[in-house]
Simulated assay, not measured.
Amino acid sequence: MPLLGFLNELSTPTDDSPRELVIEQLVLLARSVQSVRRWRQDFALQTPNPIPSWRFGENYGFGDFLRDARTREEARSLLSAVNRAPLRHGLAMARDADGDLEFRCGEQVTEALGLADLFDGLVLSFSDPRWRQRLLSVERTEVVEMPEGQLELVTTSIEVRNACIPDDVDAHRPWLDTAGKPPFEDFDNFEADRADRFANLDFLGRALDQLRAIEPTHPWWSAICGRLDELQEAMVEWDPTTSPEPQWRSRVTGEHQQRRRLCDFTDLDGETRCFDQHARFTPHAGRLHFRLNPVGPRLIVAHIGLKL
């Protein structure tokens, strides 16, 4: 999957913005995209609307930007990045697949900043003073099924990476070097390295079979490997004598009582146990089910796939 950028729709110049200001902001946006693509040729820019339809007031649109010889190179670089974008339904796809999600920056609902969180991507903003920050604070609100079965609204504060100018892109360089790249080339590479990389994780045979069936080019591959890395990091720091469970790097919950029967699997020793704790991955309702064993300590993965 390419490294994804998301155009911050809240930063779009208003219809009454002076034409020269719009041109300047489009040029800076294009040069930021060019800067990203110098490091990551697989970069794709997701936009809320098709790029040919961009208009900034009645008398200026993207077509004018493209036809102007002074800005044609910048326009073509934007076109190239946007044409690579793989998503067609945006945040609605993730919302429909995995419960209600809403993201807000300040008082405004945002799609792009939410997608950047869901897909570990980069936000690109027009260079307005409000958006000249390399990390943007966002409130994520979702409907969560609690262990007892009731539904509750849960709001979490997150930060997403943002760039308005090429210097911002350079500041994100360490992340750009690794973001979106699968940590394992394929399942054989995973098997060869997992004993060292995931020293505190064990896997049931069924979980390994599920992972083996996922192609490294599928968006899930990178997301799952990233979740496994996070679980290993949490396990390394966990002291079972002082805390009932690790400090998770992403949201981990258990199933409510009525659904726990779906989480019974034959453990490594042949006994049937409940693996109801689970982490999430996207796109769609991806679940990674496991149980903790304080001896070791160990985390045993039983299910990698869609929600049970």
Score class of each variant (00 low, 15 high):
Leu208Arg: 11
Ala44Pro: 02
Asp100Gly: 00
Arg72Leu: 08
Phe103Val: 05
Ser157Met: 08
Arg291Phe: 10
Glu73Val: 12
Pro48Thr: 05
Ser80Gln: 13
Phe187Pro: 01
His256Ser: 12
Leu306Asn: 10
Arg173Asn: 00
Asp267Thr: 06
His284Cys: 07
Leu79Trp: 04
Ala213Leu: 10
Leu135Phe: 13
Pro166Trp: 10
Leu113Cys: 09
Pro174Thr: 09
Ile165Trp: 12
Arg212Asp: 13
Ala163Trp: 02
Pro48Ile: 03
Ser77Asn: 06
Pro283Ser: 09
Gln41Ala: 15
Val109Tyr: 05
Arg67Gln: 14
Met146Ser: 10
Ala69Ser: 14
Leu268Ser: 03
Gly180Ser: 06
Ala92Phe: 11
Arg298Val: 09
Ala69Gly: 03
Gln46Tyr: 07
Thr242Leu: 13
Arg273Leu: 14
Glu111Ile: 05
Ile304Ala: 02
Val295Lys: 13
Glu73Thr: 13
Ala195Lys: 14
Arg227Asn: 10
Arg206Gln: 15
Leu28Lys: 11
Phe119Lys: 00
Thr47Phe: 05
Arg104Tyr: 07
Glu271Ile: 07
Cys164Val: 12
Asn83Arg: 15
Ser157Trp: 04
Ser222Phe: 12
Gly254Gln: 11
Leu204Met: 06
Leu308His: 09
Phe203Ala: 02
Leu28Met: 12
Gln277Asp: 07
Gln277Gly: 00
Val160Ile: 07
Ala285Arg: 12
Asn162Cys: 15
Leu87Asp: 10
Pro240Cys: 09
His284Tyr: 12
Arg291Asn: 05
Val169Ser: 04
Ser157Glu: 14
Leu7Ile: 07
Arg134His: 08
Thr266Asp: 11
Val143Cys: 11
Leu135Thr: 07
Leu113Val: 06
Gly99Arg: 04
Gln25Gly: 00
Arg72Lys: 14
Pro183Ile: 08
Asp177Leu: 15
Arg132Trp: 02
Met93Pro: 00
Pro48Leu: 12
His303Tyr: 05
Pro166Leu: 11
Asp193Pro: 00
Pro183Met: 13
Ala302Gly: 11
Leu262Ser: 10
Gln133Thr: 10
Asp68Asn: 15
Gly90Thr: 04
Pro283Cys: 08
Leu21Glu: 15
Tyr60Thr: 04
Asp170Trp: 11
Ala30Asp: 01
Cys263Pro: 00
Ile214Ser: 03
Ser157Cys: 04
Asn83Tyr: 13
Asp168Gly: 05
Thr242Phe: 10
Asp64Phe: 08
Ala171Lys: 07
Phe43Val: 05
Ile304Trp: 01
Glu58Pro: 06
Leu211Cys: 04
Ala279Pro: 00
Arg38Ser: 13
Val144Lys: 06
Phe126Ala: 03
Val123His: 01
Asp167Ser: 14
Val236Pro: 00
Phe203His: 02
Ile23Met: 11
Arg251Met: 14
Thr178Asn: 03
Leu78Glu: 01
Asn200Leu: 10
Glu74Ile: 02
Pro182Leu: 10
Pro147Gly: 07
Phe275Ser: 03
